[in-house]
């Protein structure tokens, strides 16, 4: 299968390399690239790289206020897009969970003494590091810096 598929008229549908069927009508935020002719194409390389996280991330857009049985907030497209930008840059896909405050948490858990929890919102990226049992928290403003730090941790 070609890695890219041109978006034509109507609903785009296809099958990713991992065999998951999808339709663009279900995804209002798709990783796209421009061809030399200027046409927008879906970046299948990104879809495949993210694996289950791609579908999971987009499913968060369907979570309405109160989704967690309490006061859970819905998720903005900006938060989804910022998270997507980070995921695209990661060498190893993290575990990913929605939080009740409308943020998305990315986790690498090596063991109880070595883990990272990164919370992505539409405006902030905040991180809990546990390194050799020592906790620290950090705010990161730049998506590239956040991705690099996660890659450094997991490597």
């Amino acid at each position: 299968m070609a890695p890219f598929l041109t978006i034509g008229l109507g609903v785009l549908s296809g099958v990713t390399a991992s065999g998951n069927r999808f339709s663009s009508s279900a995804y209002s935020v798709m990783p796209q690239k421009q061809t030399s002719t200027g046409a927008a194409v879906v970046d299948f390389l990104v879809v495949n790289k993210l694996g289950d996280n791609f579908h999971k991330l987009h499913s968060f857009l369907n979570l309405k206020n109160g989704w967690n049985g309490y006061d859970g907030k819905s998720f903005s497209k900006l938060t989804i897009n910022r998270t997507l930008s980070i995921l695209k840059k990661l060498n190893v896909q993290p575990k990913m969970f929605p939080t009740g405050r409308g943020t998305i948490q990315l986790e690498y858990h090596i063991d109880d003494d070595n883990l990272v929890e990164m919370e992505v919102s539409s405006t902030e990226i905040s991180v809990l590091w546990v390194i050799d049992g020592n906790e620290s928290e950090e705010e990161i403003s730049d998506i590239r810096v956040a991705s690099k730090k996660l890659n450094d941790f997991i490597s």
Binding site: S59, F60, L63, W67, N68, G69, Y70, D71, G72, K73, K95, F97, P98, T99, G100, R101, G102, T103, Q105, E107, H109, E117, E119
Partner: peptide, 24 residues
């Protein structure tokens, strides 16, 4: 506290700490 599917860490068999984050 109840934990929905999306906040459940299947690998660990436990909730993620995301289940304990709320704006209120």
């Amino acid at each position: 506290r109840g934990v929905v599917d999306a906040c459940w860490d299947e690998k660990e068999g436990r909730p993620s700490s995301a289940a304990f984050k709320d704006s209120k």
